[in-house]
Design a protein around this nucleic acid. Structure first.
Lengths: 155, 155
DNA sequence: TACTGATAATCAGCATGCTGATCAATATTT
DNA sequence: AAATATTGATCAGCATGCTGATTATCAGTA
């Protein structure tokens, strides 16, 4: 039996576990209550106003069924607006509200700090290399999960 | 706003997402139905028969409240036995059953294959380096999550 | 145009993974 | 020994994240 420390899957889980904990701690310290998933959702919608949920899911590599609940909670809190698309009555277009934009702006320093903290054991060069290797491994495995990353298509 | 591909937290989530999908696919192909968490639990108990749940949680860096449910399901399926500790009536000692051992043995090739698959985009050297960097980052952040890795103590 | 297949969103169901609380039992202090 | 603190397990509650199904709608074809 291989040692846990030799299992990429175990290391992936641990690193992600720490990344989430660091994110939540930094964000809470800044006086906000937002999960990594909620943050990514807000940021993606600000950059792509009016996206539908499937496209949004592809942009940040979420499962489409997970998005529903995440968006629900953000709408409930007044950070997003969801309305039917005029072009396709199946789809819902998503817009960020002013409160959502304010939250994003205010929270950004904490998010940046969290990204630094989760690499704090590494030198700058090692941190860059870790990110490169993760990107490369992810690119090769993109299609293996149910929620692959997708480029946005023009509509 | 930083690009997602420059955010270690985003990369961590994606890599973990792919790792889990690969694990489940390989294991299912081998004819089993076991999650990564369940596998790690079985393996840790086989190596440390009679551990209590808190120690187990520390060995594989799980939250103690998560362990309860995981062990429940494994006991239900007859892969584990949970019985009160004679030394401490608060604690439950965990043992792996014969069925549990058989499952572990039978599933090992699939788990090994999954570990290779999740690094398939990298050269051997890059894979080794990725694991080294993850271990280093994790060691530095170990105490930042609610479920840090803990050495087993002799009892 | 009627039919067929694909697509957007949602849902039920299950398994992590966490926060914070409770209960029983043990350990420590006074 | 009595009072206090700590610890092991569990629980309720919430948020991902997935599988597989359903519903409404759209797009392409016969």
């Amino acid at each position: 039996m291989r040692d846990n420390n030799e299992m990429p899957g175990h290391l992936a889980r641990r690193f992600q576990q720490i990344a989430v904990a660091v994110f939540l701690a930094e964000v809470e310290e800044a006086g906000f209550d937002l999960t990594p998933v909620q943050y990514a959702t807000l940021a993606a919608i600000r950059t792509n106003p009016g996206v539908d949920q499937v496209t949004l899911a592809g942009l940040i590599a979420y499962d489409r069924t997970t998005i529903t609940g995440v968006v629900d909670r953000l709408v409930q809190r007044g950070l997003l607006i969801r309305h039917p698309s005029p072009r396709d009555r199946r789809a819902r277009e998503l817009q960020i509200t002013e409160a959502g934009k304010r939250t994003l702006r205010a929270i950004t320093p904490a998010v940046e700090e969290a990204q630094r903290t989760m690499l704090r054991g590494l030198t700058a060069k090692e941190g860059t290399e870790l990110m490169r290797l993760l990107r490369k491994a992810i690119a090769a495995g993109n299609e293996l999960s149910r929620a692959p990353l997708r480029e946005a298509e023009l509509r």
